[in-house]
Amino acid sequence: MPTVNLTYREALRACIIEEMEADQNVFLMGEDIGRYQGTFRVTQGLFDKFGPKRIIDTPIVEPGFTGIAIGAAMTGLRPVIEMMTMSFSILALDQIINHAAKIHYMTGGQAKVPLVVRGPGGAANQLSAQHSHSMEGWYAHTPGLKVVAPATAEDAYGMLRTAIHDDNPVIFTENPGLYGVKGDIELNSGFSVPFGKARVARQGTDVSLIAYSRMVSVCEKAAEELEAQGIKCEVIDVRSLLPLDTETIFGSVAKTHRAVVVYEDWKSGSFGAEIAARIGEQCFDELDAPVARVGGLNVPMPYSRVLELECIPNEANVIEAVQRLS
């Protein structure tokens, strides 16, 4: 099998192509994904390759096309729909939360919704208050959904495959800052990454930094700087929020006895707070310090770059939190 070095964006595309070739029931829907090649170019070339029956440009109607995808999924199709940004999935919350997430349960197992909702989530560069949401916490709060947030090109490739094969609605969030990161991908290998398995991104003995999506690389950089100060951080890439691999997280905390949970979402009431709570509940005897959190400021994302940078957690914030623990 050929191994190629691909960007996160290309890795997603490669997986989509392989899955569409393998299964006629897989199709894509979204705004500007076809003729315009996708806002972030994840779907570049797919319209030419697969045609308008399977690469469907929709009007700007997230609730409507999400609902149609859910209905189609109930008939056995496997829609992969793109939210131009996850902020726009707010319009489709009713379809996702009140419909998709409930269907298997309400039908007593009669109906399944093999749906993937994917797209960029989180802040980019001055997109301001209405376009910068981290939505994963809203979804990971909801029983009936699965939620993943890969941080690397390899995981993007392997987890999208798992998402497409999954018979449940899956929210697949991609931070816009990750589209250009590269990784080695073995094409046509069927490589997949199971949900509910965290990844140890860096080994360490002193503090566990627990993160997902783009914050993993922020933690890795912080860990490097802290290493120079003699503090060895372990970085856990959660990558699957729901289901959550508490075994790996708790195992790391049992080793380091200190934990910092790092996430871009608003600090209060986020999924990171849930992770911190679980560590507090389950690892009380292991902890040498209270579980710390580093999250985004609790404000609507401001437009000014100066203010925006103030809101998004960075390496310095992580280092400071670690130093406070030691």
Binding site: K267, N298, V299, P300, P302, S304, L307, E310, C311, A321
Partner: peptide, 20 residues
């Protein structure tokens, strides 16, 4: 703007929970 302005205007009468 000054970084300290980030918390202004979230509410009319209070400030949100502060800090990372």
């Amino acid at each position: 703007p000054d970084p300290s302005e980030v918390y202004d205007h979230v509410y009319t009468d209070m400030e949100p929970e502060k800090g990372h």
